[in-house]
Structure formats: structure tokens, C-alpha cells
């Protein structure tokens, strides 16, 4: 582990000013914000992250869940995953989010992990996490051994010839379907980023994972007002019953009137290089009868552009089944 300075600012402006000195907010950052530390500290122990300064943001009063004026929800960046998943309003109006969080990690990790940190959760690709290996995400230009190596759990959507790392977050999949908005305060003021714009595709810059710049502090996330009558479900498929990242997951929201789908939001997890909202699936569902044929067509549409590697072809079919079944179960809920 690299020797670092640990700072516990109490004032967001000071935190932002300190972080703004970092040469990047992406891989290789020399200043890092720390929420629960469940990703960052792990990666520091592995020497994947080697910040000189770590800013603990838990004293910035970003830990509240509040109603917004428009009837939505404002979730502070340091709200713990457990608190968010068990919040009454989340369980009532944003069930898919609660389910997604509770399907992730373990109770102990959820008690530490924060919302802001989960937005920035890093891939579990074994090559990324081992500094003895090449990795374009960790060391740009060094190569991607995953493409010819062990890639069973890696991405089939949004990949590039430089990187096929999966985004592992469950929470983000639900947030993508819920069309959350991310609120960022930086040295040049505050701004909002729609969820779909927040994470970047790897392309030829896999070390750049989000739109964040040095000094950018995620202060909170807002959820739009709940969709009345929305049927929601998060389904996660994995090898074992618990404590494992998704091989494929689906967050779905359906509104059905007189047997027809009037509103559909779909996102996939475990298969994309970023939390994978599927407008193709949503289009395939909109206005159609809520039946198995429609759901299958939506799943076909969602995976149409999937690209498999040597070991993960099965994930295409698994993701199809995951989405089809999630839609079916949601429609029946």
C-alpha cells in the first residue's frame, strides 16, 4: 500500500479545493474522496489505486434522504446503501432500487458502502485488480489480457477492443431505469448530470469511466417523482445464491393499462461496460400488449448488439432470459 495522507474535511468547499489539485478524477487520481471505502480501500491495498491524499467526505453532511419539491427523492452521497434500501419511501415508490441494493454484496458491506461510492464502483475484472497484469483501464496502452484470457464474467455490451470490463454495480442498474440525476459540485460551481450521461463507454480511453473532473464532488442523487402504478422488479442471476456479482441482472419498470404497456424502463446489469439502460427494449415494449411474446422481443432487442468473448457467450442468452422473466414477473406483480 502506498503511503497517503488522510484528511477529514468538514466543509465541502475545502474538500473540493483539495480534490481539484488532483491531476485526474479518473484512474490514477492522486486525490480521492472516500465514502464507505469498500471499493477504494480494497484497490489501495492492491496498489491499483495509489492516491497521495484521501479525503473522507463523511463529515460533509451529505447523509440525508429527503423529499424533493416535485415529489421525488433526494439522496445524499454518503447515505449508506442499507439505509437507502430500507427507507420506507424507497420501498414503496422505488422498489426496484431497494431490491437492487439488497441483492448486492453482503449486509456488512451495504452498511458501509455509500450511494456516491456505489456510483463509482470499479470493475471486478481480475486483470484490472492485479498490478502484475497488463490492463488498459489501469495503465492505458498496456493491453487487455482479458480478451484472450479469463473473461467468463466480463461484458458483452458496450465493449471495445481495448476493454471488456463489466460495471459490477447493482444499485446503478436500478438508478439507470429510474432515470436518476446526479448532482455534482465542482470548483467551477454545481451541475447536474443525467444518469445515462454519467458513465462513459471504454472506447479507446477505458481509464476514463465517468464525466467527473478533478474537484468534482457528487453531493447527491435525485430520483424523479414516482411513476404512478409502476410495476417494478430487479432480478439478478448469478452462479451462487448470494454474495456474488451478477452474471446478468435486469431492472424493469412497467406501467400497464388495459393489458397494454404504457410506460417501460429497462436497464441491464452484469453485462455492460456501464450500467446498461436499454432504449431498444423500452421501444419494443412501448404500446405493446403485456405478454410473453412482447417480453421476448424486448429481450431480443436489448441484446441485439451484444458481442461475446471466448468464455462469455452464454451471457447473451442468460441476459435475454433474465430480462424476459423480469418483465413477466413484474407484469404479474
Amino acid at each position: 500500500m502506498h503511503i497517503f495522507e488522510f484528511i477529514r474535511p468538514t466543509d465541502p468547499a475545502a474538500a473540493i479545493a483539495a480534490a481539484a489539485q488532483s491531476k485526474t478524477a479518473q484512474q490514477g487520481a492522486d486525490v480521492r474522496f472516500m465514502g464507505g471505502g469498500t471499493t477504494l480501500i480494497d484497490l489501495m491495498k492492491l496498489n491499483v489505486e495509489t492516491p497521495d491524499r484521501v479525503l473522507d467526505i463523511n463529515r460533509l453532511s451529505l447523509d440525508k434522504i429527503e423529499d424533493t419539491a416535485d415529489g421525488g427523492l433526494k439522496i445524499g452521497a454518503t447515505v449508506r446503501n442499507s439505509d437507502l434500501a430500507n427507507h420506507p419511501k424507497v420501498q414503496k415508490d422505488y422498489l426496484v432500487l431497494s431490491q437492487a441494493i439488497l441483492n448486492g454484496a453482503s449486509a456488512q458491506i451495504r452498511n458501509m458502502a455509500t450511494v456516491g461510492g456505489n456510483l463509482l464502483q470499479r470493475t471486478r475484472c481480475v486483470y484490472f485488480r492485479d498490478t502484475a497484469m497488463s490492463c488498459n483501464k489501469r495503465e492505458p496502452g498496456s493491453g487487455c489480457p482479458a480478451i484472450t484470457g479469463h473473461n467468463r464474467t466480463l461484458a458483452i455490451l458496450g465493449t471495445s477492443e481495448h476493454c471488456i470490463a463489466t460495471n459490477p454495480s447493482d444499485m446503478c442498474v436500478a438508478m439507470a431505469a429510474l432515470e436518476a440525476t446526479i448532482h455534482v459540485q465542482g470548483s467551477k460551481g454545481s451541475r447536474v448530470v443525467s444518469f445515462g450521461d454519467f458513465h462513459l463507454l471504454p472506447g479507446n480511453t477505458p481509464h476514463r469511466e465517468t464525466v467527473l473532473e478533478p474537484g468534482d464532488l457528487i453531493t447527491h442523487v435525485t430520483l424523479p417523482p414516482p411513476v404512478v402504478g409502476s410495476k417494478q422488479l430487479y432480478l439478478k442471476l448469478r452462479d451462487r445464491a448470494s454474495y456474488e456479482f451478477a452474471l446478468a441482472s435486469a431492472a424493469v419498470m412497467l406501467t400497464i393499462a388495459s393489458g397494454r404497456i404504457t410506460h417501460a424502463r429497462v436497464a441491464l446489469g452484469g453485462v455492460g461496460t456501464k450500467p446498461w439502460r436499454s432504449p431498444e427494449a423500452e421501444t419494443a415494449l412501448a404500446g405493446k400488449p403485456a405478454n410473453d411474446a412482447t417480453f421476448r422481443q424486448a429481450a431480443e432487442a436489448a441484446l441485439r448488439n451484444a458481442k461475446a468473448q471466448s468464455e462469455n457467450k452464454f451471457k447473451i442468452e442468460l441476459a435475454r432470459r433474465c430480462l424476459t422473466y423480469a418483465l413477466k414477473m413484474a407484469s404479474m406483480s
Binding site: 492485479d130 502484475a132 497484469m133 484470457g149
Partner: peptide, 8 residues
């Protein structure tokens, strides 16, 4: 790992 022989 097929390339470097590490238990990956």
C-alpha cells in the same frame, strides 16, 4: 491464466 500461468 493462459498467458502468464497465474492462478487468476
Amino acid at each position: 491464466d493462459p498467458q502468464n500461468g497465474a492462478p487468476i
